[in-house]
């Protein structure tokens, strides 16, 4: 068995807010294999986003260790991260294609090849006909697809998603869940998916990590064994329900 792609051990992060210490993350331990889609689920303020920021290199940890990359898949910080947030954060003065190109532009990747790749990615996320459109012309779901294409354009090894479908209506969200699974299968990326949707976490994740708030700590982590590829009807199965109940229990909701 190969070494995990990401090893997080006893991760700890403390914020100092007006002289007081606020523990944002405590005792988070998590192993993620290359090509895995891991859901990080928990209530607001449980430190999920802080974990993402540390992985992205935007924040430094105050304790514990974070290692990304292994022998087969070396990880270059600042090069191998793609991010998707709740807001699509598309630049409204750029076309969709130019928006998708942004990370590659910042990294200084060759322009022509990147353009090709961006077009392919737009095709993959179902926006092939919208390359020259401006963000305002797209629906929320379509904008979020563009944001996913943007996260993939520089071919990073790790995609960090912070409640990417949180602002979408329920039906669009279901659709985007299916899309994400398809994109994940096609791209074979390692994805860390932060959500507070329990159903979403179980449906998407090959592994689920559950975090609780106050103090922010990790409650449990387990693999989800559901038939692949997953379809929406898996949500009505007993196995799915059992996973969901387990998370409800961990979050003190049952």
């Amino acid at each position: 068995m190969t070494a995990p792609f990401i090893r997080i051990e006893n991760l700890r992060k403390v914020f100092r807010v007006s002289g007081r210490e606020l523990v944002a993350v405590q005792d988070v331990t998590l192993d993620i294999r290359q090509g895995e889609l891991v859901s990080l689920v928990g209530p607001s303020g449980c430190g999920k986003s802080t974990v993402l920021s540390i992985l992205a290199g935007l924040l430094s940890a105050d304790g514990g260790t974070v290692e990304i990359g292994n022998a087969e898949n070396p990880f270059t910080p600042g090069r191998d991260i793609g991010m998707v947030f709740q807001k699509a954060l598309l630049l409204k003065w750029r076309t969709i294609l130019d928006n998708v190109m942004l990370p590659a532009e910042i990294l200084g990747l060759p322009r022509r090849e990147t353009r090709e790749r961006a077009r392919d990615l737009l095709q993959m996320v179902g926006l092939g006909d919208f390359a020259e459109a401006y963000p305002q012309q797209l629906s929320g779901g379509m904008q979020q697809r563009a944001a996913i294409a943007r996260a993939l354009v520089h071919d990073p090894k790790l995609i960090l998603m912070d409640e990417p479908f949180g602002a979408l209506d329920a039906l669009t969200r279901e659709k985007m869940n299916l899309e994400l699974l398809r994109i994940w299968r096609e791209s074979r990326k390692t994805i860390l998916f932060v959500t507070h949707g329990i159903q979403e976490a179980v449906f998407l994740g090959s592994q689920v990590a559950v975090m609780t708030a106050g103090p922010a700590r990790m409650a449990d982590q387990f693999h989800i064994e559901l038939p692949e590829p997953r379809h929406l009807d898996v949500k009505t199965t007993e196995a799915f329900g059992a996973y969901a109940r387990r998370i409800y229990g961990l979050l003190g909701l049952s």
């Binding site: 920021s53 992205a56 290199g57 935007l58 600042g78 090069r79 991260i81 793609g82 991010m83 947030f85 807001k87 954060l89 942004l102 990370p103 910042i106 990294l107 520089h154 960090l160 912070d162």
Partner: peptide, 9 residues
């Protein structure tokens, strides 16, 4: 968040 996004690269 947009700043975070570009800072991540």
């Amino acid at each position: 968040e947009l700043i975070n996004l570009v800072k991540s690269v």
